[in-house]
Design a binder for these strands. Structure first.
Lengths: 191, 191
DNA sequence: CAGAAAAAATAAACTAGATTAAGAAAAACA
DNA sequence: TGTTTTTCTTAATCTAGTTTATTTTTTCTG
C-alpha cells in the first residue's frame, strides 16, 4: 500500500472529500509509521513532547502508576483509534504500551496542529476525549465495579474479548481477584 | 463599571495586550451578565445548547444525579473561573447550580468560538479542563477519600472554607457521614 | 510437545466506605 | 431573640472491594 495510506484514508473519511496532493504530501512528511512488539513501552512517565498515535493494527493502553506502584489503565486504543497524552508537549505522567504487536502512525503535537487547517478537527478530537473521560469519572463515582463491567461489555464487547482480564480490572479500578469474583458470580447466576 | 468590564479585562490579561474597540464590541454583543440566587439552578440535565459561564462573583457547581438519585459534584467555579458542560451544544447530563448568590457572564458555545480568533484560546481551555479531569480520575481510582481530601485542601484551601462539607464529600465521591468520620479522625490524631 | 511462565480462580481474613437512624450544633430567618 | 431549617456528628450494622496465599488453567517458548 501507498505510504501513509491508512492515515490519508482516515482524513478523507472525516473530511468527507479527497485530499489534495499538497495535503497528502504534508501527511507523508509529518506522520511516521512505527511498529511495536507486545509489551513494548512507547513512552513513559517523565517524558515530554510525547506524540499522538493512530493505530493501524494492534492494541495499545495508556496507564498511570500510583505512588504504591499499582497500575491503572486510563485508555485503550484499537484499530482506527487515536491515543496519546493530550497534555503534550508538557511532561506526561503516563505510560503508553503495546498490548499486542502493533503498527501505528505517530505525529507530534505541533505537526498535528499544523495539519488540521483551523484546529476544528483537533477541537473535535479533544472534546470527544473530554466527554469520554467525564462519562468515565461519573461511572467510577456512581456505579459499582459490577455495573461498570456490564457497561463496558455492552459498549465495547470486542475489547472484553481481546484484553486480558487483569487489564480490564485495572481499567475498572478494582483488583483482578475482585473482577474474577464478579465474573464467577455472574456465571453462577445464569445457571 | 463599564459593561462587560470583567470579561474584557480577563481577555486582555490572557492575550497580554489591550483589546481593540472592535473586539470589545464583539464581547459586549455576545456576553450576557446574569445573577443567580443561592441554590438557583442555571441549567439542568436534558437541556441542549447550554452556555459557558465566567464567574465574576460567587460560587457555582456542576453536578450529575445518578440513577438512584444521588448527586455527584463534578466541578466548582469561583471568581474568575469558567464553568460549563463542554459537550455543548449536545444535550447535557449535568446540572449547574449557584452555591452562593452569584454574578456571572454567560456566552453560547457558538459565540465563544467566534470570539477566540483561531480557536487557540478555546483549545487551551478545553485542554486544561481535560488534564484537570484526567488528574481527578487518577486520584479517585488510586487514592483513598482521606488522601483526596488532603490533596484538595492543599490545592484549594479556599474551596474547603467556602463549601459546605456535604458538597466536598460529594466531590470526593463519599457520603457526608464518611467525610465527617475522616475529619474527626484527623482532629483526634493531631492531639 | 514438554516445561516454564503468565493469567485466572478460589477462599479466608480484613478494611474502606455505605446505610440507617438518632441527636447536637450551627446557620438562617422572621 | 427564639424558632425553624440546614448542616454536622456519632455510632452500630452492613457491603463492596482488598490483601494474601494457594491452586488451577491457559499461553508461550525452546
Amino acid at each position: 500500500m501507498e505510504k501513509c495510506g491508512t492515515i490519508i484514508s482516515y482524513y478523507e473519511h472525516i473530511y468527507n472529500r479527497p485530499l489534495a496532493d499538497r495535503e497528502k504530501e504534508i501527511i507523508r512528511n509529518t506522520f511516521q509509521k512505527e511498529t511495536f512488539k507486545k509489551k513494548e513501552i512507547i513512552f513513559s512517565s517523565g517524558e515530554s513532547n510525547t506524540k499522538h498515535y493512530f493505530v493501524e493494527k494492534g492494541l495499545l493502553r495508556m496507564y498511570v502508576i500510583d505512588t504504591s506502584g499499582k497500575e491503572f489503565n486510563i485508555l485503550f486504543a484499537r484499530e482506527n483509534q487515536w491515543i496519546g497524552d493530550l497534555s503534550t508537549p508538557a511532561i506526561t505522567s503516563f505510560y503508553l504500551e503495546a498490548i499486542e504487536k502493533s503498527t501505528v502512525y505517530s505525529v507530534s503535537d505541533e505537526n498535528l496542529n499544523v495539519l488540521t487547517d483551523n484546529f476544528s478537527t483537533f477541537v473535535r478530537y479533544i472534546k470527544k476525549s473530554y466527554i469520554f473521560l467525564q462519562n468515565r469519572l461519573v461511572s467510577i463515582l456512581s456505579k459499582t465495579a459490577d455495573e461498570n463491567y456490564e457497561e463496558l461489555s455492552k459498549l465495547h464487547p470486542e475489547l472484553i474479548k481481546r484484553l486480558p482480564q487483569y487489564h480490564i480490572s485495572s481499567y475498572l479500578g478494582v483488583t483482578p481477584e475482585f473482577l474474577s469474583k464478579i465474573l464467577s458470580n455472574k456465571a453462577r447466576k445464569k445457571d
